[in-house]
Design a protein around this nucleic acid. Structure first.
Length: 476
RNA sequence: GGCGACGUAGCCAAGGGGCCUAAGGCAGGGGAUUGCAAAUCCCCCAUCCCCGGUUCAAAUCCGGGCGUCGCCUCCA
């Protein structure tokens, strides 16, 4: 039984969807005014993996992740670059999909864009105005925060706390400084749509409410996003949604911890970020994914080269195991009844692995714990391989497929696309290694070793293992 | 100032009252194997931020500190 830490209650709770066996899941997507950075990638990767894990557990999942293609940041940036906002948004939306693909994140079931939902947004805002939660002032429409008695329930603050915070800028137009914009009037040179309040565009938070509810329904099961979105973004989403429907908008609110860089939150405004695509130039996707899964999603995580290098070595360990198993002869061996101590131990691990894995993962999507189970399996299998040389080899195949079965929802260890050599290169390489092996036969270790180390510098790793020479290409 | 998260080995990181004589990974040291490497195996490497308390029993619960980060303004 999956448990999730729910920001709304501040506790880890049993996860029980509204409709048995089915999960409606919304995760906040990007505002496409720039490439996303490696910190932005965390929720994309982690929540997609949670979605895959739910599928792994047998749920039917409907997953929505929006693209905000209309926003003041887009307008500002477009102006700086002298292009149309739509053009800029389109460019970065495409880049977003490319980067997601490189990270191994599967596309959501619904990928709504704000510009396609303006009509529904207007309808939603109108409904709020009718109910007395929204009010218009000179073409802008604001949400009357004091009208919504549950305001602050997600972020754990009261309206009075917020008042005393005093960092809320006072806009003369608003009835109350805490009220937030549902609709904003547009200048003639800004993108705008006709509405009951004149030409304008949606406010900052309304899009998510509308797109979540349009694609998934008035009440959804999970809503996810970065920890920094709790207030005001998600708080406002709740207010807008529940004020209109009178129903609970979402039951489980989950938030990922932020990525830090040298002790500070990585963010665009601080300028201490690295684009995801830049990181992917240096590290493959599985390294990046492992890096995220090696820490619980709610914890802050430090971005550093050391951490990425560690992740890379760890990923390599599993791939070494996988390819070592492939290189074994497929011979059957003894029956399972005559297994040695190591064999019995491994068989037991294989049989209990899935339960142990789910036990860990069910604790608020504890990926480090889940990885521990997978690595333990690898360790036991290696031990068996080393100690029980004459034994049943298909046990190792079993171990391999169990490792891959469990890693699947994490998008790990399914087989990486080797940077392959072209046909000609491959032939040349084979020739080279043949010559090298003749040198070895003749005892010319010096030259043979030189060949090996120079190939390694080119990213080609050569191993002489059990009388056979193998090679592989490392892209990084 | 208000609200919140976090603090476990050299590093990353699980564990949340007794199975902890604290998983797993990375790095390091010693050994096995290897022509040498690589891979693999074996061994070594922590008393859990501090101080009080609750309990037969606490890394785990409670109180108080200290520290780090975040939110209260656009931000994943």
């Amino acid at each position: 039984m999956l448990h999730l830490y729910n920001t709304l209650t501040g506790e880890q709770e049993k996860f029980e969807p509204l409709e048995e066996g089915k999960v409606r899941f919304y995760s906040c997507g990007p505002t496409v005014y720039d490439y996303f950075h490696i910190g932005n990638a965390r929720p994309f990767i982690v929540f997609d993996a949670l979605r895959q894990y739910l599928v792994f557990k047998g749920y039917e999942v409907e997953f929505t992740q929006n693209v905000t293609d209309l926003d003041d940041k887009i307008i500002d940036r477009a102006e700086e670059e002298g292009v149309e906002p739509e053009e800029l948004a389109e460019e970065y939306a495409e880049a977003y999909f490319e980067d997601l693909d490189k990270l191994g994140v599967k596309e959501a079931d619904y990928v709504p864009r704000v510009t396609e939902y303006v009509e529904q947004i207007i309808e939603h805002v109108s409904a709020l105005v009718e109910k007395g939660y929204g009010y218009e002032v000179k073409g802008d429409v604001y949400f009357r925060v004091r009208e919504f008695s549950d305001y602050g329930k997600l972020s754990g603050r009261s309206i009075d706390d917020l008042k005393s915070g005093a960092r809320v800028e006072v806009e003369a137009k608003k009835e109350d400084p805490l009220d937030f914009a549902l609709w904003k009037s547009s200048n003639p040179d800004e993108p705008g749509w006709e509405s009951p309040w004149g030409r304008g565009r949606p406010g900052w938070h309304i899009e998510c409410s509308v797109m979540a509810q349009t694609t998934l329904g008035e009440s959804i099961d999970i809503h996810a996003g970065g920890h920094d979105l709790i207030f005001p973004h998600h708080e406002n989403e709740i207010a807008q949604s529940e004020a209109r429907t009178g129903k609970q908008f979402c039951r489980y609110w989950i938030h990922n911890g932020l990525l830090e860089f040298e002790g500070e939150k990585m963010s665009k405004s601080l300028g201490n970020f690295e684009y995801a695509r830049e990181v992917l130039d240096d590290y493959d996707r599985e390294t990046v994914r492992y890096f995220y899964f090696s820490t619980h999603y709610r914890k802050p995580l430090n971005f550093s080269e050391k951490n990425l290098e560690d992740a890379k070595s760890a990923v390599n360990r599993v791939y070494e195991f996988l390819s070592n198993v492939d290189e074994l002869d497929t011979g059957g061996g003894d029956s399972e009844s005559s297994l040695s101590e190591y064999g019995k131990n491994l068989l037991d691990r294989i049989e209990t692995a899935r339960d142990r894995f789910e036990e860990e993962m069910d604790k608020d999507f504890n990926t480090p714990g889940g990885l521990g189970v997978i690595f333990d399996l690898v360790k036991q299998a290696n031990k068996f391989r080393d100690k029980g040389k004459s034994e049943n080899r298909h046990l190792l195949k079993k171990a391999k497929s169990k490792v891959q079965e469990l890693s699947e929802p994490l998008g790990l260890f399914q087989g990486r696309e080797e940077a392959s050599a072209s046909g000609l290169e491959e032939d040349l390489l084979e020739l080279l290694l043949e010559v090298r092996n003749e040198l070895r036969d003749q005892g010319d270790w010096e030259l043979a070793d030189r060949m090996r180390s120079e190939l390694e510098e080119m990213g080609i790793e050569v191993k002489d293992q059990e009388g056979e020479t193998t090679w592989s290409v490392d892209r990084n």
